[in-house]
Each structure stands twice: as C-alpha cells, then as structure tokens.
Amino acid sequence: MAGFLQQLVQGLGAGAVYASLALALVLIYQFTGIVNFAQGELAMFSTYIAWQLTAAGLPFWPALVLTLAVSFAGGMLIERVIIRPVEGAPELTLVIVTVGLFIFVNAAAGWIWTFLIKDFPNPFPAGALEAGGISIGLSTLGVLAVVGVVMGLLYLLFRHTKIGLGMRAVAANPESARLVGIRVGWTLALGWGLASTVGAVSGVLVAPLLFLEPNMMGGVLIYAFAAATLGGFDSPVGAVVGGLIVGVAETLAGAYVGFIGSDLKVGVPLVIILGVLLLRPQGLFGRAVVERA
C-alpha cells in the first residue's frame, strides 16, 4: 500500500509539470483557436534564458522573474509578428506555421547554446517529508505548489480584473468584444504572452528533473497534449486535472504493468488521446461544440 501511495505521489509530481504546459496550450487555444505545437519549444527556450542568467551569476529567483518577463514579451512578439498574418487561416495553415516555429526555435536554441546537455539548478531544497511510510520529496511539493499558485493567479486574473474580463470576452466572441471597445488584437497578444509565461514556468520546473537540452520538452509536449485532450482543450481547470491524471496514469502503468515498464510509458498519452477521442471527444471538462455548417 505504501508503495502504491509512493507511486501516486510521484505521479502527481510528474502530472503537475504536464499540467503547467497543458495550461499554456489551453490558454492559447482558448483565445486564438490555435493548438500551439511550438509551446514546448518556447518553454525550453525560456528555460535556456533562465539558465543563461543564473550562469551569469544572478541568483535563481531574480533570474526566474526576469525570465518570465522576457517570455511574456517574447510570446506577445511572436503573436504580433508570426501569428497575426495567418490569423483566421485554415487549421492546416496554423498547424504548419506552429510546426515551423517548433523547428526554428528548437534549432535556434541548439545554435545558441549547442546540443550538449546542461545542469539546471533545482530551486527547491533536496530533503523529503516522511509520513506513514511514504516520502514526499520537497521538490515534488514545490512543483505542486507552483502549479497551484499559477492556477490561482490565473483564476484571479480572469475572474477579478478588467483585463481578464476582456480576455474572456474575446475568447467567447471576438466580433462582439471588438464592438464593445475591447482591443482584440492586443488581447490576443496578451493571451500568447501569458501562455508563454506559464510555459516558461513549466520549463523551469522540468529542467532540474530531466536535463536542459534543446529536445528536452519534446517528450513533455505529448503528455501535455494528452492532458489538454483529456481535460478539454477549452478548459484551464481541465488541463490541470488532466495533467495530474495523465501523470498518475503514466507512473502507475510504468510501475505495475510489467509489459509497459519504463520504456513504453510514452505510449500512455497515445492511448489516452485515442480513448478520449472515441469516448468523450470534448474531454472531461470541455464543452461540445455545436457548429453551423
């Protein structure tokens, strides 16, 4: 039993990371209807910026704040420069453009920082809490806490600020939002900025667990997609819940299903995506879209 609980805790820790990247995906999808295949790579790039700042001698937390600010600006810039020209284009075009961005950002990071792996400092202390035979690493708790805080901040932003209200209006109906005087263009850019910031958080959380290298987020991205599909692409809460479920499912499958083991764990998101598409395509928390042809 203790072993099972231990696995559960580990799964939640992994799930929190997936949840944070899934949150970034869902944010962009809500505002622009784009599934951003470059989200993981943007997060990786942000993590490199954080690494560069700490390597230059800045303490971790100021470096993180600076990184988040840079990511926010970078996300807005990408929306204004790269996404704006294809706004409203067919889904195929949008996917191809974000895939192009994926390739470009990945290679650019490799060009600037080489493909050699780098050690990323762990912001959380190394110890662990012992309770009832299971030990919870402080870093796991830290990751869960950070994702909780990000979730809470986003909730406050969307529910209790004027900017958040405007953003929800744009997500619900861009034309009507424009008619009541909301600057839709800037709001979309803001959405990308926010998503990049949340993505940067997930990158910084992942980097100490894996190693920092340009392909770091490739594996995480597919889990985040599974999480967003499971929770529903239009639901931030769903993304977090989905992320935790995916993390737990993956860890338990790896630990208890002998055939899967640690190497085939990456099949879990595929099974989850297929399962959700077959049984409940809108996801657990998503709304089914009714379309007028």
């Binding site: 790269i82 020209p85 294809v86 075009t93 191809i96 453009v97 895939v99 192009g100 961005l101 994926f102 390739i103 470009f104 950002v105 990945n106 290679a107 650019a108 990071a109 490799g110 060009w111 493909f115």
Partner: peptide
C-alpha cells in the same frame, strides 16, 4: 554552417512559404 542550421532554415522556410 552549423549543426543547427538545417532546422533554422527549415523552420524559417516553412513559415515564409505559408505566408
């Protein structure tokens, strides 16, 4: 040119072609 150059070129070209 660089190990990363193919990726940079591919990425930029894809986006440029779509535009």
């Amino acid at each position: 040119i660089n190990d990363a150059a193919p990726g940079v070129i591919f990425g930029l070209l894809i986006i440029a072609v779509m535009y």
